[in-house]
Amino acid sequence: MEYFLEIFLGGLTRGSIYALIALGYTMVYGIIQLINFAHGEIYMIGAFTALIVASVLTMLGLNTISILVLASIAAVIYASAYGFTVEKIAYKPLRHAPRLSALISAIGMSMFLSNYVLLAQTSDFLSFPNLIPELKFIEPYSHIIRSNEIAILVTTTAVMIVLTFIIKFTKMGKAMRATSQDREMAMLVGVDVNRVISVTFIIGSATAALGGVLIASHVGQINFYIGFIAGIKAFVAAVLGGIGSIPGAVLGSLILGWTESFATGYVSSDYEDVFAFIFLVLILIFKPSGILGRSESRAV
């Protein structure tokens, strides 16, 4: 039973992280109908920024809590800045180009960013400091859940609530929904579409960066390649839930997290990464609109 619970919670944490990354995919897709292949790299850059800032602050002798806060803030700021810039360089000029062009540009951006970090930093795994303090009251249950995992669950929930609020109730949220419904129309009624797209990239990148900080301090090491795998998996989660739908992204992430957790816990860990792909192919064949997605009617 305890083994089951451990795996269950492991899946939940895993799923929460995927959800933080999947949000970015799904929001960007909702607005410009493009898979932002570079999104996984943004998450990776967020984690690297946090690591670098945390290391510098550790040398300066700050305490853990302030390091955690400052490193997270730096990660969020930098990831957002990268997300913003990537959109301006690689996607904005291609907004009216064929879809294939935009996709190739996205792939190129992803390759560029991961190799840029590889060159500027290192190809080795870097150990990531454990930034989240061990909480006293957790200790008796530490074989089942660690405070790291609690932090992940709490952060994810908080991000979801804030995001839902932004999209449902703010003016920007309304503009986002309008743009995703019909970009031309939104433009005609005075929505600054460029600004909406930029904000979408910034929000998506910021949540991905939070995910990056949390997973890095959970796993304890990072390298330039983490963005690629995590990016693909989060994408699978977004598609599973129904791309374009925010609750769908969360649901899809949790399902994927549990599937992987149970499959590696009870079957075999060699093929951990294969499950996600098999999942993806099956969904795309049988229910391409995902669990909560609207089925698209093609306009002719």
Binding site: A90, S105, G108, F112, Y116
Partner: peptide, 13 residues
């Protein structure tokens, strides 16, 4: 690889 990535973006743009 970094150049290849940049080439893809620049060519597309």
């Amino acid at each position: 690889m970094v150049t290849f990535g940049a080439v893809l973006v620049i060519m597309m743009v």
